[in-house]
Design a binder for these strands. Sequence first.
DNA 1: GCGGAGGGTTTTTTT
DNA 2: AACCCTCCGC
Length: 727
Amino acid sequence: MTTLAPETAELNPSQVEAVEHAEGPLLILAGAGSGKTRVVTHRIAHLIDAAAVAPWNILAVTFTNKAADEMRSRVTALSSERGAGMELGTFHGVCARILRRFSDRIGINRNFTIFDGTDQTAVVRTAMKDLGLAASQVSPAGARNAISRAKDELMTHHQFAEHAQGFFEDMVAKIYARYEQILNGAEGQDFGDLIVSAVRLIREDAEVLAYYQDRFRHVMVDEYQDTNRAQYVLVRELSAARRNLAVVGDDDQSIYGWRGADIRNLMDFETEYPDARVVKLEQNYRSTQLILDAAHGVVERLPGRKEKRLWTERSGGEKVRVLESYDDEDEALRVLEEVQGLIAREGGRRGDFAVMYRTNAQSRLLEESFVKAGLPYQLVGATEFYGRREVKDMLGYLRCVANPRDSVSFGRVANVPARGLGEKTLGLLDEWAAQRTMAPGEALRMLAAEPPDPVPPMLAGRALKALLPLGEMFLRLDAAAAEMPLPRLLQEIYRETGYEDYLRADPEDAEERIDNVVELIGASAKYADLLPEEAMTSFLQEVALISDVDALKAEADAVTLITLHAAKGLEFKNVFVTGFEEELCPHVRSFADPAQMEEERRLAYVGITRAQDRLFLSYAKFRGGWGSRSRVPSRFLQDIPEEAMERDRPVVTTATDFPGMADPAVKAATVATERSYRDGQKVRHPVFGVGVVISGKLGPGGEEVQVAFPEAGVKLLSVAFANLDII
DNA sequence: GCGGAGGGTTTTTTT
DNA sequence: AACCCTCCGC
């Protein structure tokens, strides 16, 4: 991976116009690779140095922490005052900071806990249980999504209930109301709340609004096409006094509609601010002309887009390579082969390569082929560190200590490792706590600290016996938290809760999980010097608001594996877009909705425009997994001018083609050299019955055949295991 | 009433 | 891989 053009490069006239615009609304329509970050950072430096704006009077909002970090370091390099004191971060990070300072003014504890997506689902499930709703009636994920979308539009549960139509929305209205109760009781703020509460704060508290309007004299928003309604209102209010609002965006790269992004924020900016200066950045500094031709072919078919056409001085270049593979396994080997070939032939850096895909699940085979070949890679997202069970459990304990009202974390860890606290006992504790309007964690501590003299009858006996040790443990941890630096506290939690022994007892995964815990404790080291409460809150906030791409290291000598979504904003010399097939890209779940299909198209555009020098579009004829069926190349391929492409003759690859793959098991498995089943052959399978072979191949795992069964459908079977009879 | 085993499902994309 | 759900032994 490389960064954008050097800072010393001269700015083109459009860029200068954007950079030098100081007062009043500004809309920068920045095409892919048009030097957007350069313009934004130069503009900030210009405000500071030429317009004498103090850095702390500037608010700049980006989409990821990574983008914010990069922007900060560039501003530091460019401006005389190094941009110190500037407010720069993601929407969620900036809002969290505002709330940590003032949220008690609207009745929110400033030490609130941030609830992530997993927590949200847990709350939804609890709410549904309270309401007697089964997961089969309403999908928890669906309900969570609906609630999040409502919050994106600043819709309270009251408003949601008013507009609810049909069974699903009626149910969601009820779940939403209960969800809010639980969340408030736990002093939690979910992702949506961070924005919603910040908006509520500045709307309800004139003093706070005045303070921030005076403080943020210049407001700048990146990736404006991906902002939602709530974010739009926030930005509008904050900048209302001076109207120094600069937004940067590209409607062609709007890919987050499913998450509440409202492209109208960008499209209607000129209506909203009739005096806005509009600057289009159309010169691309990233890609070759042929790559841009391909990109334009895909995107020009979108209706109603803001007209712009990227151009570059990098005429020509290599044609876009279209790779056809037999199946997804071959595709993974094929990509590996191309990467290794290019590195061997041209001495390229591994970091100059990225392999992109639509769904996280697609990364698995790619990883496998890279591992076998010993080719280093860095995977963005998917099984990210903070999603690991042991990490979440450890953080769950920390959250319980930092915020005893966090009933969600309490529910997660109370019986991990198992300590005799089943559904029944925890239910009793919940009930008893609710009677005293306490959270279970608080009630439990009270129970342990000063046991009520006649023991509450509902808890007498077995329940109390199991509960008391946990309560005492939390009291010890509370005491530890008050006096220990954060890393030591985590160490203490690890030991005191029995989690360490619990992990060690796992014969399979002990080592890996322990490593992860150690790494987590290490990550907390930078908070060691803060006061305990602040340390816990800051650490937990950082962890909650971290995004997948944040972990991506630009300087790593490794191939990047990344989803198309996460790749937005990045660039690489060589880009592979894999699974460039119907039902994957565009994704089948978008077929029914034209608006979603347009978003799929923009997503393909985003992928294509990540490439600087070389672009590979890869598809397979078959793909394993959920009922593997024959595949059709993406419709987007047809929109790319044929002259810009070079279609490869399909190549059937096998593991033996790769000298790097020294694994003897792999070699042994590829001994078979001839197919033993012909297409059209009738076979009998012990489970699926009689079927017809429709295709087959020799792969690293031996011979595989696709067989169509009248009942079971098409199955991909390994001849070695399937026990087929020829009939 | 708890805990472990086993089976099925999950997300398409994520701050 | 994580999680939910069900089943069964203790």
